[in-house]
Amino acid sequence: MTFKLSRIQFFLIMFIAQTGTVSLSFQTPFINVVGRDAWLIFIGVGIFHYVLLLLYEKNYKYFVLGPFGSWLYKGYWLLIIVSFISYIDYTLAVWAFPDTPQIVVISIMVGVSLYANLSRPETVINLSVILIPLIPIFYLLLLLAWPEFVWTNLFPIGEVDSSRLLKGILTSQFTFIGIELFLFFRKHVDIKQKIKGLPLLIYQMFWLVFFLSSVLFTLLYFSLEEIKMIPEPAMYILKSQTVTFVERIDLFFIYLWMMWSIITISLFAFTTMYVHQLHANGHKKRNTIIFHILLVLLPLFLHSKEHVAIIQKSLVYFHLFFAIVVPTVVILMNRRKKK
């Protein structure tokens, strides 16, 4: 599979893959663990994210996977997609489609991904563009709650102990999921376009502002005890906003988020098929169809919220393995070989 990415396409893929599904749900478990210190800790987590990107940028050329490593990553992404689809399906059943059969919702989501992945690579890559005008709209809608923000909710700080801090850092890793895509797509970026330095810092700032502001909005809007009851804080912020042109802006947003998530799934599916093609001999179309049939069938087994929660919790550990441990080992081995 050959394709070339511009710098903007590359960062857009990264951003959509990292923010899509996770953006709705990561705040509550994170704040529940670390309390009011969440915003401060997330700034620290953001620095770690930037360091990781810098290390990736420095060493991506040494990240060359063999067939075994590729299969490991394919399994990991399959788990991510299945977990995301299950969560999206569950959330949509609660907010938008309570009576629509699960298989119909999943089939349509996966159908979009299948259609895009059977097309030229540019189709999936450019699908993210559709979200560019929608993300600022999402922000503007959230900012309608500004008059109800309580600034004292951010203080006092420094109350978290070391054990909760560690748990919080672990929980915040949900926002990192997808960062490993950097290692796979970086080499496809037009060599004339610079990534190192300011462009990477700008991407990092987009990522940080996006997630940090969602943590801040949650803390500013809700009391700490209330957050424990609310799995999707952004939905509740939007649910209580009154505008003249839409009766329920939360429902408007859930469709936007669904779109966002479908594109995230398509990107992960694209990455999986891309890595598969690196070591497979042809049959791209057949493999893509089989993979997407799996994506429809596997989430059907996760029919309770508990199953979805278990898979989601385990994702963090898989992420640490595939975003830090495996790249470190592969890069070190390849560096040594080259020496």
Partner: peptide, 20 residues
Amino acid sequence: MKRNACILLICSFLLSGCWD
């Protein structure tokens, strides 16, 4: 192809008209 994918994506909004 890209346009068709977008249309399919937008059509998914209409899901609620069937069962819900």
